[in-house]
Nucleic acid binder design. Structure first.
Lengths: 189, 189
DNA sequence: GCGATCCTCGACATAGTGTTGATTCAACCG
DNA sequence: CGGTTGAATCAACACTATGTCGAGGATCGC
């Protein structure tokens, strides 16, 4: 009777246990201070058994970042799609981003600030994607006469995105400041 | 005759050789990829002899950063002491900062971006010092009616300094963009 | 009950860091 | 000259973390 009760094999459950442990540990301490031993112990397996499920710590981090990537994109989609200097969409986007950094700070830091080479794919997806879309939005506003000329939109967007990550990584609640700087940088003459 | 000819003992020369090697290697590759073996080999000594001269790689990095700290301070002194939105002093300060990052990128990156705990003293000296002075300058301009109100000067300065470092670390020539953003962020309404 | 596949582990290999104790060497003191 | 001292050097060791291998144990499909 009842062969595969719930569809989750022992192996599946162990893989999920590793990810759950990683999620827990990576909210508390920097990625570099979590060892594979920690992850294996948290999942109740030996260190070398870990390698059956993941190739490296970076693979676990990548898996977790995949989960977060969509939230990151959704957080800014509103503002990126809009136009003009109105404050609310920008503030909303930044509030959500700030929450994500509070929840996943060490992970995002490892990928976006420390620039771990193993996390390059995620980083370029997020960073380049944001920069390209933000630059497009800036050009749209300039063409519409809503924003004044200034540095190349791409360079401006790049600087603002990097500032956003750097500031989110260091202050718990920087939204007001970021809103002002970004609006002035884009719309101030 | 001529006992201590030039005052430099063998040990002194070796210490300088380590520093020279470090200077060379740290212009080419990230700090984390230079091993103590590399430094020792470059200075022509064994790895364990290295530990006679320095406690760790971080100690070497600290010594090199000491040399750079003064240049960093001098680079921005002009602008920090002035007032008002005029472009030249800001641009001059940023040009010098950009040159320093081109020459010592990996070192500055390790201290100011990656936030290596062992380099905390240098980081707080540079970062907090800059932020405090920039905040004071912003308040001065606000009091003088040269700059409009906005986020707390401290928070604004912190965000701009972090943006500066983040952008310098990633683009070879970001001065134009930084000049515009900073002026708009401080003086734009 | 049997074979294939999934899963686990202990043992090993490698790279980097830091420590220890013995030894060399140069200078200076009597 | 001989002896003491302290600086400088090294080989060997210990530790931590990562990743690899092959030998088996558990489990599922039949």
């Amino acid at each position: 009777m009842g062969r595969r009760r719930e569809g989750l094999s022992k192996g599946d459950r162990r893989e999920l246990a590793i990810l759950a442990t990683a999620r827990r540990l990576f909210t508390e301490q920097p990625v570099s201070r979590v060892t594979i031993d920690d992850l294996a112990a948290g999942a109740g397996i030996s260190r070398s058994a870990f390698y059956f499920y993941f190739d490296s710590k970076a693979a676990v981090v990548t898996a977790l970042l995949e989960e977060i990537a969509d939230e990151m994109a959704a957080a800014t989609a509103d503002w990126l799609a809009g136009s003009g200097p109105s404050e609310a969409p920008l503030r909303g986007s930044l509030e959500t981003s700030a929450r994500l950094w509070r929840e996943h700070g060490p992970l995002l830091r490892q990928a976006l600030i420390e620039e771990d080479p193993a996390l390059l794919p995620f980083r370029s997806r997020i960073l380049d994607g944001f920069v390209a879309k933000a630059a497009a939005r800036i050009e749209r506003d300039r063409d519409a006469g809503l924003a004044p000329a200034g540095p190349p939109a791409e360079a401006l967007a790049d600087a603002l995105v990097r500032m956003k990550f750097a500031v989110l990584a260091s202050s718990p609640d920087p939204v007001d400041t970021l809103v002002t700087i970004m609006r002035r940088a884009i719309y101030g003459s």
